[in-house]
Design a protein around this nucleic acid. Structure first.
Lengths: 349, 349
DNA sequence: GTGAAAGCGCTAACAC
DNA sequence: GTGTTAGCGCTTTCAC
């Protein structure tokens, strides 16, 4: 109870700085195993009286278990890796979307008493390396390209569980949690069609037969009925601005733009406005994600919303399920999306 | 050479999956120590030929050192904690400002071969706990209140190095990296004065004689010359909107607002606009931080810029300096700020 | 230059 | 219910 009594008094001059299981065991007059069982909540194997006594001593001495030791002995670390793409050793600019999700993941994991190793991945091999170096119980991959994930898992030892967020790579080791991107694309197209838009531009990172962007494009194109122009652009504000600036020159008859990310859409709006175009009067623009950002800009951004907290919770639940209950790798989870109408879309002119 | 020969052949049926130091040692016909020295770059103690041979085997077998084991034996983990405030076990909404900095910190640490444990802190005791549980070499504290930091360090074992970012708490264990907040406040005031503003409102989280916000207020008030109204508001968009909405009612004669965070300022602008006020024609608004966000909104936000990458780099350099070279705790570092004029401020009406 | 012994703090698998 | 034995994979210390 007294917070001043934190230094072990004296026993026999043992290690002064770190309180270990052994210290507790000696003080309590029991074996280390008994203490270990109490610490780990194996109450079935210890008498209530002993439990109570040990817990008191634990608090009294300020005992904190060594996760390194536990990890070594038990081959499990209660730590999972949150792995994000890093262009190279020099950079780590976490995308706004990933940023939003990392906090949620940490929270979900902490609730379950897992720690988080945050790490940027520059070379494919680093995934397996990180996993093994720390005996990670699992890993969450955030926003890697499908083909990258294939490389990771090839080099992965195989035992560690991996859940990829926002990926369509299906393979023996990776399970995925993703948004219903096809529906998202469809909802966007339907919204624009309902407003009378026919000549529209699809803007997003280059895609080729797979991945999040491709999925969105499939849904979009199909629901649109007709053809649509595709503009390749990175998911950045500046690329959006560039596209917005030249949009009316390159696509004079287009009345709407669907961008695969909010940040890109916001750039497009800014670029358009620079050229004197009014949004949505002249051109409608919509994004994808529903970041907080959408409410901050003017006009506010119409977008396809995904439930980020739910995505994070699902990813963690899947991973922990595989880890703790050794569940069968669950089928990829697909989360619902919905349209959020705001100010950046309006009737076709 | 053959990559299929990864399973140690026979010995006595030892651990099959993980390649250990011992495996390397046996294959190379040397002792574990020699291998260990090679791995750790203690080249002084090993002959060049041996080094070369061992390194080849390491690659061949795909050896990855166990950080848990290293951490246990060496009492140092090459891992540092990045600790952020979490309101409670249930939440972790990392502030935009902290988010921006986390990526930078990870990058800086990875460059130096340190791993990052990301953890939300709900109770003061968790800091010391996290530190000891993983044998962390150090910790970076992000955006905690000064008084919170005092509690952490009180319960800290004392040996582990801690650097607090954005804090003024000076005590034996914590060193700080912060922005020159007083100057930031001063620059804001000077800018507004130069535009002819006299009746201005200072908006930010409640403060009381210490902390980042207080510092900014000191600089601001002094440079302003006169008195200024203070409005307490959390650093959120919604609080900003609320303030903006009632600003003209509560402060009819005010012509400018200085908010201590961009996100808050952006909310204020939105709230003002809702009431029909024009920014900056009727009211000028400025923020602090210079997040990317400032360029996305309309009008673009005038703000006090801090160099986030530099802040991150400095924090990491300080921490690593203390860890590796056992340097004296350096004096708190204070980083420069500068005014970035954009569209949200203009001449007083 | 290289090696042997001891142990970091913990847990698995059994015995009692 | 509780204790014992044997490591997990690495580094330290000191001997050769």
């Amino acid at each position: 109870m007294l917070s001043t009594e934190r230094q072990p008094s004296g026993e026999g001059g043992n290690a002064s700085v770190r309180v270990t299981l052994k210290d507790i065991a000696q003080r309590a007059g029991v074996s280390m195993m008994t203490v270990s069982n109490v610490i780990n909540g194996n109450s079935a194997r210890v008498s209530p009286a002993t439990i109570e006594r040990i817990q008191r001593i634990v608090v009294e001495l300020g005992y904190v278990p060594s996760h390194s030791a536990r990890s070594l002995a038990a081959k499990s670390s209660r730590m999972v890796g949150v792995l994000v793409p890093a262009a190279d050793e020099e950079s780590l600019t976490i995308s706004p979307h990933n940023v939003a999700i990392i906090g949620q993941l940490e929270r979900e994991l902490r609730k379950r008493a897992y720690d988080v190793l945050l790490r940027g991945i520059a070379r494919p091999g680093e995934v397996a390396e990180a996993l093994r170096a720390w005996n990670l119980d699992g890993a969450l991959l955030l926003g890697f390209l499908d083909e990258e994930i294939a490389t990771f898992t090839a080099s992965s030892a195989g035992r560690t569980r991996i859940v990829a967020v926002d990926s369509y790579a299906d393979n023996p080791v990776t399970r995925g949690v993703r948004t219903d991107d096809v529906t998202g694309g469809r909802l966007a197209a339907e919204h624009l069609r309902a407003l009378g838009h026919v000549d529209v531009v699809f803007a997003g990172p280059r895609f080729a037969g797979q991945g999040v962007v491709w999925q969105r494009f499939q849904g979009f194109k199909e629901a649109l009925g007709g053809d649509c122009a595709v503009e390749a652009a990175n998911t950045t504000y500046d690329d959006g601005v560039a596209l917005g600036r030249r949009l009316r020159a390159d696509h004079p008859s287009a009345t709407a733009v669907f961008a695969t990310a909010d940040i890109l859409a916001i750039g497009v709006v800014a670029g358009l406005q620079e050229t004197g175009a009014r949004v949505p009067d002249d051109v409608s623009v919509m994004g994808f994600d529903d970041l907080d950002l959408c409410r901050y800009v003017r006009p506010t951004l119409t977008t396809i919303a995904q439930d980020l907290p739910a995505k994070a919770a699902t990813a963690v639940a899947m991973l922990i399920g595989e880890i703790e209950r050794d569940e069968e790798p669950p089928a990829p989870a697909t989360l619902d999306v919905h349209l959020v109408e705001r100010g950046s879309t309006g009737p076709a002119r």
